[in-house]
Design a protein around this nucleic acid. Sequence first.
RNA 1: GUGAGCGUAGCUCAGCUUGGUAGAGCGCCAGACUGUGGAUCUGGACGUCGCGGGUUCGAAUCCCGUCGCUCACCCCA
Length: 429
Amino acid sequence: MPKSIQPIRSVKGTRDLLPPETGLWQRVEDEARSVFAVYNFREIRTPVLEPTALFARGVGEETDIVTKEMYTFADRDHESLTLRPEATAGVVRAAIEHSLYNLGGIQRLFYIGPMFRRDRPQKGRYRQFYQIGAEALGSEHPLVDVEVLEMLTVFLSRVGLENVTLLLNSVGCHLCRPEYLRILRRALEPIRFQLCADCQRRADTNPLRVLDCKVPEDQALIDQLPTILEHLGPECRQHFDRVTAELTDRGIPFTIMPRLVRGLDYYTRTAFEMTSGSLGAQNALLGGGRYDGLSETIGGPPIPGFGFAIGEDRLLMAVEEAGKLPNPESIDVYVAWMDDRAFIPARDLARSLRAGDLSVEMNYEPAKLKKMLGAANRLRARFAVIIGESELASSNFQVKDMSSGEQHPVEPDRVAAFVREKRSSPVQS
RNA sequence: GUGAGCGUAGCUCAGCUUGGUAGAGCGCCAGACUGUGGAUCUGGACGUCGCGGGUUCGAAUCCCGUCGCUCACCCCA
């Protein structure tokens, strides 16, 4: 390779996911699909590219996501387009566009895919990152919230994560939140200059975020501030109480965090987050909540909704650390043939094993048995089929179990059945 | 957008303070073992020391610049 040309590299904040890691990603996604299916969530695939206005209006003009993190550009016809920074707005847009609200009942949708935000990359944060999310549209019933939270806990335990904390809050609705914001602003006025520089700024720009401050010196003062939970309207209060009561009944542990706020404007009532250690500073594994007014803000009819997004990149970090989910990187059979006369029987065997849904690799050139068994070992093949002179003479291939070392002569037509039978019996590793 | 740390073999890293022939472990290839892998031993391949400039007889090492990566702030998944 000529050194004078510098190799092209992946864009900052994006990365290649390679095997064997992709095997683990597939396992996690398979679990998500199977758990979501049981709760009758079906897949939706929306475009990565959306009109910029969708996010400006849906997510909120003043949010950090919209003001400084979006990949926005003018299309050739000058229409402003944006790479989606999150998927909920797009899902709701699609629900409106296809009149899903006319189908009746609750529309339960899930998605898996890449999102884009132009942050400075760091641990657990990338400019192209992946989210697994779900949205339940068409009901404001608190049991919807609980059912989705239950589904999340089932999913997380399926991928081997046990110690995840559910942090819960209610952020009120369009009726009670403005009133609370006035109260909060009034409470901040006398103490703001005793707070950290960031909080002084937040007091103006986004007072709710002051509640989220992590500076130790500020905590005592912040603890004195009124919480939104104390100022919920009667309907929001009732909704929240039903959610917490039902979670308790179902044995789903949670911690009420009166100071938990979300960064997207569309959230109403239930807001939640699940955090996990081992993720560094970005410890939010997933987040979500209710967004009963979102549809209207993007021009649709009232469609109440509840949903979440899991940071798949972060989820995988946690799953790898927990080490409970086996990574399935292995093949069933390595076909090892030794001289040219063995090639055709070997090739035919590989074809028929593959037709029978077994994963097979073979050598393309005659090679020493030792070398091929070494290859089989490296590929973590469960069996090696040896085809050499004596096997051709006896019309029986040697099938070697790579974990035990045992070896049996097997007729060519019976190899698949032999492998399948021994594979399904419990193996010691 | 701000700050700090780090760029040496495919991977993990030592060497840099005090300038003098580029190293280790793992992995890879081959052999010991001509049809039996994982262990052991022996040998081998692989580097413009991120890039550019400066100082110097001489730079991986010192200086300047630049690019990249990482972590943190901010924000969020």
